[in-house]
Design a protein around this nucleic acid. Structure first.
Lengths: 350, 350
DNA sequence: ATGAAAGCGCTAACAT
DNA sequence: ATGTTAGCGCTTTCAT
């Protein structure tokens, strides 16, 4: 029975000694910069590494190479709860998927607050090669990014004004919302209500704009009481739909500008004895997992969030590795998912 | 207009020079090891740091101090999809919450596979001070942990056999399932079916055991066809409930050993015209967000997953900082959440 | 109270 | 093809 205690992990130096080569040679071989090395030397080093149980110290490597092979993902503090943030969770999945095969690592950066005195020290601390900013909000200190750091950066889930200088990967909010509203109009709906997301999110404004413009395309000017400002949450959808149900003459359809809002609207309808889709159609935006399980199953637009996360990570790595800043934005579309919560409006027996 | 380009971030050395102190002094002051330093020196260093925009390089600090202030969270490869893994997501939230105020950082470690040749090099690479193992499975190479590394470690979501030598933070699966089944029995149910989780998860065995024993306490020996092996997923619940609905004489209640199974069961009932809870009661385990929104809302047990994540991170940090291995396990309970998917059995008009 | 100096474990440029 | 050496930016003794 061996009682040898390996107090410390072997270092490259020890490995080199054990293999009878120089430390530089050992380093090269372990980093696959061979082809320049005799097969037997390679063999000797690899064998010794295995025998000693050598494991490279990535921290030392990062310091010397000035590359950490790690990226950070940054959220607004109030959004940093994954169980209540399907968007961030799905982005995370996409990022993880993009990183794994490229052997990059991922750091979740959780900010307690966005105090500008400490913010940039936390973000730019040498531990990451680049940053993914998840749905930065209007007015966020994060938008001053380029004044404070030169770390490569990609914005996810907000399509920012060009002037801010970020490369953004996001849903094509306007085309997608147009598609959705257009479809409702084609189904025969004219009196369509809209529950809007929070004022500090770009996507909320973009989706609302698309709704208004699409209605206008059909010659309809939506009055203020058809548009309910809310917050992208179930409870908001429930509350606002309750209001929209009071509009007279009645609305025949309600657009939740995300699925959570629509799900809340669905339950508000059920609670008030309004049948969906017979009395009113309800549609959402995102196609979160719960949408398909709703009663009735929710008609919505698939938001390719996972792919957005993947593409964003991909773009960031490219920027890190080429050093070239990315141009323009990447806006991804998603198709309409027709389920059972929407149908052509019934002619009503008044 | 300044056109100065800061090509490189200032280093501690430059800061020290600028402040006219030695590098060691500057280091001490920045790390709040003052009290040993004259106020004016402190002042000079801090001012210089601010003026230069000095930001400590955490990588260098980690190398020198041999502490990274980072922990890693490790999942089985097939579970590393957060959008399909509410458990891991909720644990993540708890961990994030525990880490933030302590100024620890978090690395998500995504393994493509558990190949033992590369596994430990990936886990023990010097970038983390400790590891959180999320729901390791029976037979997983991760269980050989202590043979391969001495990194501090805490297991989350699996209560492992003592012999494996891990400190585990987990739900108190047996007491909680006992509570649930007991309640059903108290409601008058006797013919209670059970949908079991996957064979490679300890929790599945523990929950089943509690079901069987609680039934036995009431003098009931559940026959094999009351127990449906499945996989903790919605689709499994749907399929197995469909089978359980065929059992004759009829079951009056079905226990999904997690909420997803119960949700599937709920929909299977709806699909087959079986009314819940009138014809059959359905209960779950976990209280995931969807449970409350189900139709009817699901009666279940609250699984304090977030708190488990928090406690696990807390335990790990303690172990890292004291160096003392933790003793025993930490099993957390959760209360019964009575909603509308379960009711006393109806006497049936045959 | 402050400074000097020796690493931490590795990469990369250069020399041979 | 291999060895030597100078850092990477910081912490931490040990002197003073």
């Amino acid at each position: 029975m061996k009682t040898a205690r390996r107090v410390k992990r072997p270092t490259l130096k020890q490995l080199a000694e054990a293999a009878g080569v120089s430390i530089g040679t050992a380093s090269n071989i372990l980093n696959n910069k061979s082809g320049l090395h005799s097969p037997e030397t390679v063999e000797r080093v690899l064998t010794a590494a295995h025998r000693l149980g050598y494991r490279p110290n990535r921290v030392a490597r990062s310091l010397a190479a000035r590359r950490t092979h790690t990226i950070g993902i940054v959220m607004e503090p109030q959004h940093a709860i994954f169980t209540r943030n399907h968007y961030a969770t799905a982005v995370l999945d996409g990022v993880v998927e993009a990183l794994a095969p490229r052997n990059y690592h991922l750091k979740i950066i959780t900010l307690n607050d966005l105090d500008p005195r400490t913010l940039w020290t936390q973000l730019d601390d040498g531990t990451v090669d680049g940053l993914l900013l998840i749905v930065p909000l209007m007015g966020s200190p994060l938008l001053e990014y380029h004044q404070h750091t030169h770390l490569p950066c990609v914005v996810v889930g907000s399509t920012l004004p060009k002037s801010l200088g970020f490369y953004c990967v996001d849903s094509a909010n306007e085309p997608m919302m147009r598609l959705l509203v257009n479809w409702l109009l084609e189904q025969g709906h004219r009196r369509i209500g809209f529950i809007k997301g929070p004022d500090n999110q770009w996507s909320a404004h973009q989706r609302l704009k698309a709704y208004i413009e699409t209605m206008a395309d059909w010659g309809i000017e939506a009055p203020p009481d058809w548009i309910a400002p809310s917050n992208y949450e179930y409870s908001g959808g429930f509350a606002e739909a309750t209001q929209l149900l009071q509009v007279r003459p009645r609305l025949t359809a309600i657009v939740g500008s995300n699925d959570l809002l629509a799900l809340g609207a669905l339950d508000a309808c059920a609670q008030h004895g309004v049948r969906v889709p017979r009395d009113v159609s309800v549609v959402g935006f995102d196609d979160i997992p719960m949408a398909a399980l709703a009663k009735p199953p929710l008609t919505t637009i698939r938001n390719p969030i996972h792919d957005i996360g993947y593409a964003a990570a991909d773009a960031l790595l490219q920027q890190i590795e080429t050093g070239a800043p990315l141009q323009g934005n990447c806006l991804m579309e998603g198709e309409l998912i027709v389920r059972e919560s929407a149908a052509p409006p019934q002619s009503r027996k008044a």
